[in-house]
């Protein structure tokens, strides 16, 4: 009985999430992309008043850097002094 209830809850949760999983993930990714732009803005010559703080975040985001710039349509790193691939 208990496991059946558990199963029902799982299915309900799935029923809630499944149709919109893609749309929600894409929306979240778009937000992240904007954030990446903030973090790397200064390096591309876009003045960013928070550059001093975002600099600290760069090492944390570097893993996603390649995925980000290819998704933005740039085959190689857009930054002169920042090699990627």
């Amino acid at each position: 009985m208990k496991s059946r209830l558990e199963r029902a809850r799982e299915l309900l949760g799935e029923f809630y999430a499944a149709p919109y999983r893609g749309a929600v993930a894409r929306a979240r990714r778009d937000e992240d992309d904007l954030f990446m732009l903030f973090v790397f803005a200064e390096m591309m010559g876009v003045p960013n008043p928070a550059a001093y703080y975002t600099l600290e975040l760069q090492p944390l985001l570097i893993e996603r850097f390649h995925e980000w710039h290819t998704r933005m349509g740039l085959e190689h790193s857009p930054l002169d002094h920042f090699r990627c691939c």
């Binding site: 299915l11 799935e14 029923f15 499944a18 149709p19 999983r21 993930a25 894409r26």
Partner: peptide
Amino acid sequence: DDVDYVPANRYVLFGHQYAS
């Protein structure tokens, strides 16, 4: 890819298709 392409339970999928 667990975003767009996810194998779903057939009843869940039926429910969604029917409701849509």
